[in-house]
Design a protein around this nucleic acid. Structure first.
Lengths: 216, 216
DNA sequence: GTCTATAGCTTGATAGAC
DNA sequence: GTCTATCAAGCTATAGAC
């Protein structure tokens, strides 16, 4: 056993911290409430007392940081120029994630891993992903519609989906690219990634305006 | 209970089919061997007899179709022109996945969901993702290095990672984009997606050559 | 809010008959 | 290769004392 997480902090927070780390490592069903409460250094029964069923603990873990990310993104969107560039919009959406991951402490890395698994499972689509993230995603779409008036709605949403997939897998830091590139790329070099993510996704978005088959 | 999958087929295949569907729905730990063997219409003990521990069954499920995808991709790469375009390369990598998903039968959709979860969890990175997919990924990188000689190795690998993230989440068909777009986009319209995926990712790749911060 | 104790089930894996 | 039966351990959730 490792030492309990966050000693001295309130019980609710210690449970959330431990659950975040373990859910990120092993997924919802790969972790028991016993694992979580043991890692938090509290009694088993306290998980149920504070959060109800296990599923609600999972949602509570994600909701805690999702609120913070959403607030940061709303702030960025509100500070954009009247006619934002494609790069401006992608940056406003992506930078809060990068900032937290680099400077927010270890919990944010666990959170990013957790989001990657949650976003790629149909099981949590409605109750977690759409419920927590669609309102701010819609701000992104609205902005992009102004920045690239030639795009159809389909272009706008699919472009966002491609952006989301790339971001999600990247911030998950699974180690895949480290192995594939034999050390040339490291998932932890988030600034190096960011210098590529923005131009890559911006160019991709712009290309949708000129794609050959316009009527699909 | 639903009817057993693949009645009349050999036991090993029936177990693989059932495991594929259930692992895709609920993940490795969300499914028991009892769930799988019941869905397959065989006895519990036969899962262990044919595949050993549960983890090896999981790997066997993925390996079965990974071989087929890898063969199809190798074939496409071997048929490319001497100087392939960026679009040629992305198409050679992505089209086998699309073809199987559209025309390969329901098992291929389950497989794509399963890959999305597997690719986004550090737990399976080495033993599944790198072991099964890195050799063919390297063919893609080699081709792209010729097509875009101005790119650094970092550019090439990160571009691939962005492509992979977008493809993975898209073919997972979680339903997220359907909800977000309120029906404008449907994850099942794979040809519509493909008409956007290729130009988006190709333009992204080309943009890496001209990005501002060259030395990161 | 926190603790102990436990009910009621499910789990992966295997032993041994056929 | 398939079946029955079972082991030992794990699980979520809750009741009830403090």
């Amino acid at each position: 056993m490792t030492a309990p997480l966050s000693p001295g902090l309130p019980t609710k927070q210690r449970i959330l911290d431990a659950a975040e780390r373990l859910f990120a490592e092993r997924g919802f069903d790969g972790v028991s409430l016993r694992d979580i409460t043991a890692a938090a250094g509290v009694e088993l029964a306290l998980a149920n007392y504070h959060f109800g069923p296990k599923k609600e603990l999972y949602v509570a873990v994600i909701r805690r940081r999702a609120s913070e990310i959403n607030d940061a993104r709303r702030q960025r969107f509100s500070e954009l120029p009247v006619m934002p560039s494609v790069e401006n919009l992608i940056d406003a959406f992506a930078r809060p994630y990068l900032e937290k991951s680099v400077h927010g402490g270890p919990g944010w890395k666990d959170y990013a891993r957790l989001i990657a698994q949650t976003a790629n499972s149909a099981r949590w689509t409605q109750v977690v992903m759409s419920a927590l993230f669609d309102p701010v995603a819609e701000l992104f779409i609205v902005g992009m519609r102004k920045a690239l008036p030639g795009l159809t709605s389909r272009d706008l949403y699919w472009g966002f989906h491609f952006l989301l997939g790339g971001m999600t897998m990247t911030f998950a830091e699974t180690g895949r690219i480290d192995l594939l590139s034999e050390g040339v790329c490291r998932a932890s070099e988030l600034e190096v990634i960011y210098a590529r993510l923005i131009p890559f996704m911006a160019a991709g978005y712009r290309a949708l305006a000129g794609k050959v088959d316009q009527n699909t």
